[in-house]
Simulated assay, not measured.
Amino acid sequence: MAAGQSLATGSDPFGSDAQSLPVRAGPCEIFATAIATGEGRYSEIGGDTMILALDGALVLGCEGREIALAKGQSAVIARGTAFSWRADAPVTLIGMRYTDAPQGDGGIVAIDNGATLAPSNPPADEVLLSEKPSCRSNNQFASLDDGQFKCGIWDSTPYTRVPILFRHTELMHLLAGKVTFTDAAGRTATFGKGDTFIIEQGARCSWDSREDVAKIYGTFKPAD
């Protein structure tokens, strides 16, 4: 989202009143939406959908339980889930929806920012310009087609690598640290704690972090 961009509010914040963002992502769409106040209900949602609160707070209800999302918190609503929502004050959200997700049992998964992390694969030696980092992750949601759409938490010690081709689209929200990306055109962007950004499938960019970084992620990667 561009700084200062305004979003229209309406009665269908996850559908017709949401603003689609122009991102190359195949059967995965990214949208932003604003809710002034109010409540609503959906009989089902058309795809596995990650919701991240950029500011304000939102309450999601499903099968007799409520999930409260404050700023910097997220959840995934599985395809076909019937749910309710409530906003007692204005809230702005960004969402990532995998429209080709297979139908399952439904439900809502709250992404736990404090979840225990397990070691995960660091970048390959041939792309690193620094010492190999220690990376950890906790994948908390995966679509039923071998996880083409995944959401969870990741962290890493500092590292620098050369530009690589992104074979996936990724929505990131930084929980800690700072990272600088440089793309194939030489454009540079630095993001820090609390920032939310998207890297498109097909982009080629570097990574440079001089401190530990932690993030919430939503990724779509087509099957090989």
Rank of each mutant, 00 (worst) to 15 (best):
G147Y: 02
S143R: 09
Q103P: 00
T196G: 05
V23E: 11
A8Q: 14
R24M: 04
S137H: 01
D105K: 10
E39K: 13
A18R: 07
K215E: 06
L21C: 06
C28Q: 07
L52G: 08
A176K: 15
T160E: 13
L165D: 11
N138I: 02
A68E: 13
E39A: 15
Y98P: 08
V127S: 13
Q73S: 15
L175C: 00
A184L: 09
C205K: 14
F83I: 10
V23S: 05
G202S: 10
T196I: 05
S143T: 06
A185R: 13
E39P: 00
D224H: 11
K221S: 02
D155V: 08
V162G: 00
S134V: 14
N139L: 05
L7R: 02
F191R: 13
A176Q: 15
I164P: 00
A185S: 15
A142M: 12
L52W: 08
I111P: 08
F14A: 05
K193Q: 15
C28W: 14
L165F: 12
S206Q: 04
T33Y: 00
L144E: 08
G147I: 05
L69K: 04
P222M: 04
G80Q: 02
F141W: 13
A53F: 09
L165K: 11
A18P: 09
I30W: 05
Y159P: 05
D145V: 05
S130M: 08
T49W: 07
T33P: 08
R210D: 13
I111S: 09
E63D: 12
D17F: 04
T219V: 10
L165S: 13
S143M: 14
A118M: 12
G15K: 00
G80H: 06
S134Y: 07
E200S: 09
L165R: 15
P102R: 01
E66R: 13
K71Y: 00
L128G: 04
I108K: 01
R136T: 04
G38A: 12
A78P: 04
V162N: 04
N121V: 14
A36M: 11
A184Y: 03
T81A: 04
S16R: 15
G114N: 15
P122I: 03
T182V: 13
E200A: 15
R41W: 01
F83T: 05
A142I: 02
D17Q: 08
T116M: 10
A32K: 01
R97A: 06
S16C: 03
T188L: 02
S84M: 00
S137N: 14
D125A: 15
G107S: 10
W85G: 02
I45H: 09
S156P: 01
P158D: 12
I198H: 07
D105L: 11
S43K: 14
F181R: 09
